[in-house]
Simulated assay, not measured.
Amino acid sequence: MPLPHPLPEPIVELIARRFRVIGEPMRIKILDRLRDGDATVAELTESLGTSQQNVSKHLGVLHEAGILSRRKQGTHTIYAIADESVLGLCEQVCGGLQRQFSDLAALVGGSLR
Rank of each mutant, 00 (worst) to 15 (best):
L14Y: 05
I81E: 01
K57P: 00
E84W: 11
P8F: 03
Y79Q: 04
S111L: 12
V41E: 10
F19C: 02
S85G: 10
Q98S: 13
P10H: 09
G96L: 11
L89T: 14
C90M: 15
Q92Y: 13
D32I: 00
R18I: 08
L104P: 00
V55T: 02
S111A: 14
K29R: 13
K29L: 10
E64W: 07
V21F: 01
I81A: 06
C94E: 09
H63K: 13
L89F: 15
I67P: 02
C94L: 10
Q98T: 13
Y79G: 01
L104A: 13
M26R: 11
R35T: 10
L44F: 11
L97R: 06
P10W: 07
V12P: 01
I22N: 02
P4G: 02
G49V: 03
A16F: 06
M1K: 10
A42L: 12
L48M: 02
F101A: 15
P10D: 09
E84A: 11
P8K: 04
A82T: 07
T45I: 01
K29M: 07
E91C: 00
L34Y: 01
P6L: 12
L107A: 08
I28C: 01
Q92K: 12
A105E: 14
G74E: 06
R35D: 07
V108I: 14
M1C: 05
L104M: 13
G95E: 15
G60E: 12
I11G: 02
S56M: 12
Y79W: 08
G23D: 03
L112M: 07
H5R: 13
S69Y: 03
I28V: 13
Q52E: 15
V12I: 13
K57R: 15
Q98N: 12
D103H: 07
I15F: 05
G37R: 03
S51T: 15
G74Q: 04
S69R: 08
A105N: 11
E43T: 02
K57W: 05
E84I: 08
L7A: 05
G60L: 09
R33A: 15
R33I: 04
L3G: 09
G95Q: 14
L48V: 01
A39R: 02
R17G: 04
P2F: 09
G110P: 08
R99P: 00
P10S: 08
I81K: 01
R27H: 04
T50S: 06
I81Q: 02
A65F: 03
L97Y: 05
Q92F: 12
L14C: 03
E91S: 12
G23P: 00
L59D: 05
V86T: 12
I22E: 03
P2D: 13
V55H: 04
H58F: 04
S47L: 07
E9G: 00
R35A: 06
I78Y: 03
C94I: 08
V21L: 00
R20T: 08
L59Y: 11
A105Y: 10
A82N: 15
L44M: 10
K57A: 11
R113H: 08
K29T: 04
Q73A: 08
N54M: 07
R33G: 06
A106T: 03
E91K: 06
K57L: 03
R113K: 13
P6V: 09
V108E: 04
L97K: 04
G66R: 04
I15D: 03
L112R: 10
L14E: 15
I11N: 02
C90A: 14
Y79E: 04
D103E: 14
R33P: 02
D38S: 15
L89I: 11
T45G: 01
